Simulated scan of single mutants.
Amino acid sequence: MTFQELKPKVQDILHHTEILREDKLLQICHLLLDNIDYYDWVGFYFANHEEKTLHLGPYAGEPTDHTVIPFGKGICGQVAVSNENFVVPDVKAQDNYIACSFTVKSEIVVPLFVDGKNIGQIDIDSNIIDAFTEADERFLEFVNEEIAKLF
């Protein structure tokens, strides 16, 4: 399924008022995992700014031990500090990478902003090297802009 085909499906999930926010986010994770063949793990991390940590939220894919990540550590922790997208074509080339699985080859993390504040991020792993393009970035920015309306 193309990104253009997925956009209305994302909006449809998010506009159901009878579904809890956590369940909507989980549905988004499964939608992306099931429909983009090179997305092998999709999840959200949310910031605790007082503790300077990220906490795992809804996700789809293999379980992870990384349920709490300090700001600055790993790709997700770096995005919590930089407030910028981070595309990693080859995770083995990153010094500050937290390995979730030996099968992961590339990663993309896009911050989630609400009222200009980085409250978390969407994190996607791929088992294919150099899997992500600018089109993935734009699509995930769209997803996060839609999700931000829930907060």
Rank of each mutant, 00 (worst) to 15 (best):
C76W: 14
E84A: 12
N83Q: 12
V109H: 03
F46N: 03
F102R: 11
T103C: 00
L112D: 05
I36M: 08
D34H: 14
Q94V: 14
K73Y: 10
F44W: 09
E51T: 07
Y38R: 14
K52L: 14
L33H: 12
N35L: 01
I119Q: 04
K117P: 02
L56T: 07
V88K: 06
G116S: 08
G72R: 14
S101L: 08
D34A: 06
D115E: 13
G61M: 04
L33W: 09
E51P: 07
T103E: 14
S106I: 01
K105T: 01
D40S: 12
H49P: 09
Y39Q: 01
H55Y: 09
I108A: 03
T64M: 04
V68S: 11
K92P: 02
P89I: 00
N83R: 14
V68N: 08
G77Q: 12
W41R: 03
N35Q: 09
A99E: 15
V109Y: 04
D34Y: 12
P70C: 01
C76M: 11
I108Y: 07
I69R: 12
V91T: 09
V87Y: 13
G74Q: 10
I119N: 02
A93W: 09
S106E: 02
L32M: 07
N35Y: 03
A47T: 06
D34I: 00
K92H: 11
L33T: 01
V109A: 07
H66M: 10
F102A: 13
P63I: 03
V91E: 07
N48K: 10
A99S: 15
A99H: 13
P111K: 05
Y97D: 08
F46K: 03
L33P: 06
P58H: 09
K73L: 11
P89Y: 05
V109C: 08
F44H: 05
P70D: 13
N83P: 05
N85S: 14
G120L: 01
V87Q: 10
Y39F: 15
Q121S: 09
V114H: 10
P89N: 10
Y59A: 08
G74F: 14
P63L: 06
Y38E: 09
A93K: 15
F86S: 04
E62M: 09
E84Q: 15
P58G: 15
G61E: 06
E62Q: 12
S82H: 08
